[in-house]
Design a binder for these strands. Structure first.
Ligand code: FES
Ligand code: FES
Lengths: 149, 149
DNA sequence: GAGTAATGATACCACATCAGTATCATTTGT
DNA sequence: ACAAATGATACTGATGTGGTATCATTACTC
């Protein structure tokens, strides 16, 4: 056999990395917020968080800026500045963070749109997916940073 | 105000299209398989499916080829050729198709890897996500083309 | 008021995935 | 031989992911 193995190749539809639900933005935001909850009422700046969480600084900075714009954090500029939680720990959920960084959560989007649903109207598939979505939404809403501390 | 409105801009982290769980590959595959189930024991070719499902032909062709390679379909080449279901309708699930076209399903992937989990070991977050994942897996496995016909 | 330490606002980049398109090769019924 | 079907691959444009890099602004301290 040749040392350089030929690529298996199946067009552009090779097996993918896998279905991911939570991106790094969301993940990092969750970590940072949990850490800040631990230092309640204490202003935390990006430098502190980077030391603790080992997340690339400019990336974390951007994430915190977004959390600020979205009203999750209060920001203090200038020397000695930093961030503070703006809301109760119970009101900051994983679902909320996912919606901020990944957009609205909707597994659904109706497969078989109007076109060729085997049993249109009382569509079994849509019902099942809806049921799954409702469950996941409910559970993700229950995962708050308060519940993780 | 200028006619050309300025972009709102928030770096590259603008609100995204949304969290999608099922891609078009999987969707189309499901549609095609359901249709083929309706024509049990009858060889169906891509042309037939395109007429019925209004899916771009070359894309559908590729999808069917993959389903063949994965053992979901039997293929007949040459004139009068086409595809046939290779397995029972009960054994072809939405989860199976997702794994073929989107890779392994794992919501989990451990947020807070080894680094800064607030309560390492009996990690509450990991437990919760695992629980959600198990539920979703179970439900997606129950959605078979047989159950949709 | 100058310096400095923090955030605010943008612009940019490499890479992977998504949703296809385009060719050419091979097989097979007529 | 020809036509009709699949098999195998290569390619493309748009979007998302996971960042980096600058410059502007604010505010505390000296
Ligand atoms: S999923 Fe929309 S009609 Fe069946
Ligand atoms: S240690 Fe992995 S999620 Fe907490």
């Amino acid at each position: 056999m040749n040392p350089a193995l030929p690529k298996v190749g199946r067009g552009s539809l090779e097996r993918k990395g896998g279905v991911k639900l939570i991106t790094r933005d969301t993940d990092y935001a969750l970590r940072a917020l949990c850490f800040m909850l631990g230092r309640k009422n204490e202003i935390v700046n990006v430098g502190d968080l980077v030391k603790e969480l080992k997340i690339p600084k400019p990336f974390l900075r951007k994430i915190l800026q977004i959390l600020h714009k979205e009203g999750v954090l209060v920001a203090y500029k200038g020397r000695g500045g930093g961030f503070l939680l703006a809301r109760s720990a119970e009101s900051i959920s994983l679902l909320g963070l996912m919606e901020i960084f990944q957009g609205k959560f909707r597994l659904n989007e109706c497969l078989f749109k109007k076109v060729v649903c085997p049993n249109i109207k009382r569509c079994a598939l849509k019902k099942k997916i809806d049921k799954i979505e409702q469950y996941v939404l409910k559970e993700l809403r229950l995962v708050t940073i308060a519940s993780l501390f």
